[in-house]
Amino acid sequence: MSTSVATETRTGRSLVTGIEFDMLAAFCADEYGLERCVADRIIDQALALVFVMGSTGQGDTLAPSQQVDPGWHTLILHTGWYADWCEKSFGYFLHHQPNSKVRTRGLMTTVADRIRSAGFEVDDRLWGTAAECNAPTCCGDGPCC
C-alpha cells in the first residue's frame, strides 16, 4: 500500500502583501483597460514568472506570453517597489530584456511547465497560445512592432 502526500501549490499573489497585490492589479487594470478580475490573474502569473526567472537565474531563456506581458510591465513600471522586491526575493535586480522573437507556442508551454515545476499554480488560459505583440505592451523589440 502506498501513501501519497498532497503537494500544495502556491500562487504568484502569495509572494507579495495584499496591499501590494491590490496596487499592482489596480494599475494593470487601469493602464491596459482590463477588467479587474483579469488583471488579478495576469499579475498573479507575472509574479510567479518573474520569481521563477529570478530565482533560477534563467531570465534570459524565459518570456511572458502576450497575455502576461502587461503584468511584467506593471511590475517594472513600479521601479522602486520592483527593485526592492527583486532584492528581497532573489538577491538581485532582474532586468527586463524583451525579445518577442522567442515567444512561440513551444516556449510558452515550457515557461508554464517551469512555473508549475517551481510549485506555482498556472493559469493555462494565459499561457495556452503563442504570443504576438500587442499595443501598448509591445516594446519595439521585434518584427511585429
Rank of each mutant, 00 (worst) to 15 (best):
N134W: 08
Q67M: 12
P64Q: 10
W72D: 07
T56K: 03
V50S: 12
T104K: 05
E87Y: 08
P70I: 00
S65V: 01
V50H: 11
P143Q: 08
M53G: 04
H96G: 04
G91D: 06
A26N: 13
T79K: 15
Y82G: 00
C145D: 15
G71S: 08
T17G: 15
E121Q: 14
E20H: 08
M53P: 00
G80F: 07
L77K: 08
A83W: 03
G54Y: 06
K101N: 09
A29D: 01
E8M: 13
G140V: 05
M1F: 10
T110N: 08
V50N: 05
A130K: 13
G54V: 06
G33I: 01
D60N: 13
I42W: 08
D141S: 15
R125K: 07
G57F: 14
Q45L: 09
L47W: 01
L24G: 02
A26C: 08
L49G: 02
Q58I: 10
T74E: 03
F21Y: 11
T104Q: 07
F90M: 05
L15H: 10
G71T: 03
L94A: 09
E8A: 15
L62Q: 06
R10D: 05
D113S: 14
D40W: 03
V68S: 00
G57R: 12
L75M: 06
Q58S: 12
V68Q: 01
V102G: 02
N99A: 12
A26W: 03
L49W: 00
S14N: 10
V16H: 04
L75F: 05
A46G: 06
A39I: 03
V16E: 09
E35C: 01
Q67V: 12
C145G: 12
G142S: 12
L75T: 02
W127D: 00
H96S: 11
W81K: 03
R116I: 00
H73Q: 14
P143F: 06
T9Q: 15
G12D: 04
A26S: 15
W127G: 02
D30S: 15
M53T: 01
